[in-house]
Amino acid sequence: MDAQRLKENFAQVAQHGDAVALFFYSDLFLRNPQLRNMFPVGMSHQRDRLLAALGRIVSQVDNLHDLVPFVQQLGRDHRKFGVEALHYPEVGASLVTTLRYFSGRAWTEELARDWTDAYNLVAKVMLDAAQEDAATHPSWWNAQVVAHERRRFDLAVMRVLPDRPFAYQPGQAVSLEVPARLRMWRYYSPANAPRPDNTLDLHVQLIDGGPVSPVLVRSLNVGDWIKLGPPVGTMTLDERPGRDVLLIGGSTGLAPLKAILEQIAARPNPPRVHLFFGARYIDGLYDLEDLQKRSAGAPWLTVIPVVSDHDPGPAAEHGTLADVIGRFGQWQNHDAYVCGSPGMTDATVGRLLQFGLSQDRIRIDKYADA
């Protein structure tokens, strides 16, 4: 298998954009019409996910250290869709057909063998991980809404109780499905460290045009049931001692950072922690009261609210998160955790790198990419 040949071929195919995923799913459903019911009615989000996953796999095809954990997670996560071993060859056949079609005259027997070998390897890793996970975990958890509070017209904080133990690490995300939007799974990060009562807090902001967030914010009630998928993500706390911590969250990007904060607070000797919580307007700092209560009883914790789109006066710092962190010190010796929109995350990470913080001490989660 020639990794460079795969990368060059995928770069050529990817130039056709959404047409690639559209062709793939059309071919898959024509060959296997019984599979259509496993997917949502609207396929645009699903097509985006396909191209993103393929791009990541191909870009790391010669870096198994990083690729294998990602592919294993894909295998575990696909259990909630009802994917079984018999589906993998069907998907592989449609994938190779799609690649051949968009490669045109560049397609060769060598490329066919490379892609077949690569797909078979990925499929084996996914299937092995799924089968191992099935021995100890369900495909999904049913969870009941036990609290639901609207903090703004477009933002809600909810608490759910899974029907059986749900293990995760602070900073990870979980996918969820609501009955009103079947097969439209979306990722949200629990805003708390694991609790003895097994409940999870979720912070949800309404996304314009989003099919799931309006249901979660406006229509969900206490007593309703949702489904939870297995936890995913690597923005988890580095437990090595002697490392101060910098937490930077935009809007509901606060949620995983709040879970990490709870994990830190449980230590016998917590490190110094600076938490920057940002929003466009002052009412977007929806959880500031709770954060300030926590900091009042924790001398190791400093909370800095930030507002970007108008001057909040003494209530918060004014500016973007990327700008404000530069006014509050040097961060070279900190571990940084950043979560928010892609634009905010990229700008903030860029600023941290300018300050001299090394890339390996920065962990990120772009919630809009969930």
Rank of each mutant, 00 (worst) to 15 (best):
residue 7 K to W: 04
residue 22 L to F: 09
residue 22 L to W: 07
residue 27 D to L: 12
residue 29 F to A: 15
residue 30 L to I: 00
residue 38 M to L: 15
residue 42 G to L: 10
residue 43 M to F: 05
residue 45 H to I: 00
residue 57 I to N: 14
residue 61 V to I: 15
residue 66 D to F: 10
residue 75 G to H: 04
residue 79 R to D: 10
residue 81 F to S: 13
residue 83 V to H: 05
residue 87 H to S: 08
residue 92 G to Y: 04
residue 97 T to G: 15
residue 102 F to V: 01
residue 106 A to G: 12
residue 112 A to G: 13
residue 117 D to C: 10
residue 119 Y to N: 03
residue 131 Q to L: 11
residue 134 A to C: 04
residue 140 W to D: 08
residue 145 V to P: 03
residue 150 R to K: 12
residue 151 R to D: 12
residue 152 R to L: 14
residue 161 L to N: 04
residue 163 D to V: 15
residue 169 Q to S: 14
residue 180 A to V: 01
residue 194 P to S: 02
residue 202 L to N: 05
residue 218 R to M: 08
residue 219 S to W: 00
residue 222 V to P: 05
residue 227 K to M: 06
residue 228 L to Q: 09
residue 249 G to K: 02
residue 259 A to C: 09
residue 265 A to H: 09
residue 266 A to C: 12
residue 269 N to Y: 06
residue 274 H to Q: 07
residue 281 Y to C: 08
residue 290 D to S: 15
residue 306 V to D: 12
residue 314 P to R: 11
residue 324 V to Q: 08
residue 326 G to W: 04
residue 329 G to V: 02
residue 330 Q to A: 12
residue 332 Q to K: 13
residue 342 P to R: 03
residue 359 Q to C: 03
residue 361 R to K: 13
residue 363 R to C: 04
residue 365 D to I: 03
residue 367 Y to I: 02
